[in-house]
Amino acid sequence: MKAFVVSYGDLAKLIDEAKKSYTIYGPVRKGGSYVFSRVDGLGDMELNYNRTILPPKKFFHLPYEVLMKFKLRDGFEIEAEAKAEPIMVFGVHPCDLNAILRLDEFFSRKFEDPYYLSRREKSLIVVLNCRGAKDEYCFCASLNTGPIAEGGYDLALTELEAGLFLLEVGSPKGDELVEKLNFPKAEVEHLEAKERIKAYAKNTFHRRADFEGLVPAPLDHPVWEEEAKKCFSCGTCSLVCPTCYCYDIYDEVGLSLKEGIRVRRLDSCQLYEYSEVALGGNFRRERKARLRHWMTCKFGGAGGGRYSSCVGCGRCISLCPAGIDITEVASKLKEVVKYA
């Protein structure tokens, strides 16, 4: 695997080079928070960000997209709408990278999703490894999804010391971009420095998550009722979750009533409508049932209990207006599971 040592100035060069082929997105400040946004260069970005409001999934599994256009003439004409532009997402944290890798898996199972996959194929992901927990909400270390990425990226950066980065190449696409730039090759000492940072970084997390044995979760535990009393069913937890992929598909007919579009929209299992069926039936009418459904899905229910679909990014905790904390719920459930 190729690795280089680059300065802040070199990173600016990297982005300038990338701009020839990609539109660049990176973390920028929005009020007291951060969002992934289109940037002109390194100077627009806030590399010391904790987490963005929406994860990078917004670039691949879009909150709203047109899947096709249709026309009713003599028959029924359709026109697929798959436009993928080459984008570079710069400064992705390892938790978010791992989430993208899980989405990749989901969208390429038995049925390949051409919309998602075409956007992924055209993308280039530059990971920015974390030198430690960004704040009290981070808990990737206990789920092995960070703070250092172990692969699956195109390029990965680790800040070895102020302004000096180890740049690791993880894919042919990443290689193609850096090979023109003649950056100095990394020496053994640099790789060792990264290992030291990794060993240190893992121990900086105060928040832990242990979801093992929680699938199936105890369904009648009082914690569900307690949390449901606070919960607004507003959908924030799942909308900001980097691994939540549930979506809704519907048709929007134009005013002519002879043409229209088929739309895919990000959905949330926390919303009442999500589990609604014909004639007003609803599988999860109670707020408690919806909250429990989402959490058990994150504990690993969606993966058949084989792996958790949580990557420990901390968004659902830090952005929940009701102050609900999945790690706290898990530890309350664990007490019961442990003695069962």
Binding site: K30, G31, G32, S33, V35, T52, I53, L54, P63, Y64, F232, S233, C234, G235, T236, L239, V240, L266, S268, L271, Y272, E273, L319, P321, A322
Partner: peptide, 27 residues
């Protein structure tokens, strides 16, 4: 829609005003 404003607000990547201590009715 029957769902709350928070859905549209979150997808606009706004900071949560309720968390910032303002009496938002969104939820």
């Amino acid at each position: 829609p029957k769902y709350p404003v928070c859905v549209e607000c979150k997808l606009s990547e706004n900071e949560c005003l309720l968390i910032k201590g303002e009496p938002c009715m969104g939820p």
